[in-house]
């Protein structure tokens, strides 16, 4: 990654142009041709620096429910339980962390009842108690990593 790649990444992680020729716009911004901008972004994607280019949706405005959950799972069961949880498409994040509650995940579904049903099933099947941390106020959601 050279300085130009970094500049492009910092621009497009903020905003990808919503115009007919987005790479022409990106190129103009950093003083290179459309073709070069396109080739650079393609490479950044291939090399795995870019996970995806797309829409970042506001799930609340779409009426979806979401919940952060924490659960203690015994060390010898954690992979099995994590896999069972991750299999659900509504689970967007799932991490093993330090601490007594060692598995943390977020579930997004159409309704809170759907989430409850999902969690209830996991609790029953794995004999676990899942703690629920519903959101009360959002102060920030914005992932921006200067590169």
């Amino acid at each position: 990654m050279d300085i130009l790649d970094r500049t492009i990444l910092n621009i497009i992680q903020e905003e990808f142009p919503l115009t007919e020729k987005p790479f022409e716009a990106i190129g103009k911004g950093v003083g290179i041709s459309e073709t070069e901008a396109l080739e650079r972004v393609k490479k950044l994607k291939e090399k795995g620096f870019i996970r995806r280019i797309g829409l970042i949706l506001e799930r609340k405005k779409l009426g979806y429910a979401s919940l952060l959950c924490g659960v203690h799972v015994d060390a010898d069961k954690i992979e099995e339980v994590a896999e069972m949880i991750s299999k659900e498409p509504g689970v967007t994040h799932n991490y093993e962390r330090d601490g007594e509650l060692n598995l943390w995940f977020t579930v997004t579904m159409k309704t809170i009842d759907d989430i409850d049903t999902f969690l209830g099933n996991i609790e029953k099947r794995c004999s676990l108690r899942i703690y629920r941390f519903p959101e009360k106020r959002t102060f920030k959601i914005k992932t921006f990593f200067p590169v």
Binding site: I12, Q13, V41, I50, I56, I141, T143, V147
Partner: peptide
């Protein structure tokens, strides 16, 4: 749509 952007 909150943003149209690249997710790194």
């Amino acid at each position: 749509v909150r943003r149209v952007a690249a997710v790194l």
